[in-house]
């Protein structure tokens, strides 16, 4: 629904500059984690296999292989708990959701690297 008031509320809940990354990118997601009173940063790195939602509610999904087991984590793009998202490598993709990676094992998981012009 588009409405001036809703837009304003949503805007206030978005990061001023949305982190820039694409589907197929290999990223490091730096998340702030509270342990008692101490805050530390945990990094989750993997391939972005999809984005969903829009505006302040947008989410993105990151997939990686841990000890031979596929692990997927979904993050809100605009969450204040996400410190930063670093793009390590860009992959060539022809679709918006890379669910086909779930069926692939070993070397086949790799995506062709995209050369940035």
């Amino acid at each position: 629904m588009s409405n001036a008031i809703m837009d304003m509320v949503n805007k206030a809940n978005q990061k001023e500059e949305a982190p820039k990354f694409d589907i197929g990118d290999t990223v490091d997601v730096h998340t702030k984690i509270l342990e008692g009173a101490k805050e530390r940063i945990q990094v989750f790195s993997g391939v972005v296999i999809g984005r969903s939602g829009k505006g302040s509610q947008e989410m993105f999904m990151v997939r990686r292989i841990v000890a031979g087991q596929g692990v997927e984590r979904k993050f809100p793009v605009h969450s204040p708990r996400i410190d930063k998202i670093e793009v390590k490598r860009s992959g060539v993709t022809r679709r918006a959701k890379l669910y086909f990676l779930r069926d692939r094992v070993g070397k086949a998981v790799r995506l062709k690297e995209r050369r940035r012009v």
Binding site: K32, L34, S56, Q57, S79
Partner: peptide, 21 residues
Amino acid sequence: KVGMTQVFLEDGTAVPVTVVQ
């Protein structure tokens, strides 16, 4: 009632809210 959306609290938790003018 204006509509529903989601906001982030200071500690980062996402909360479903209704906006009322």
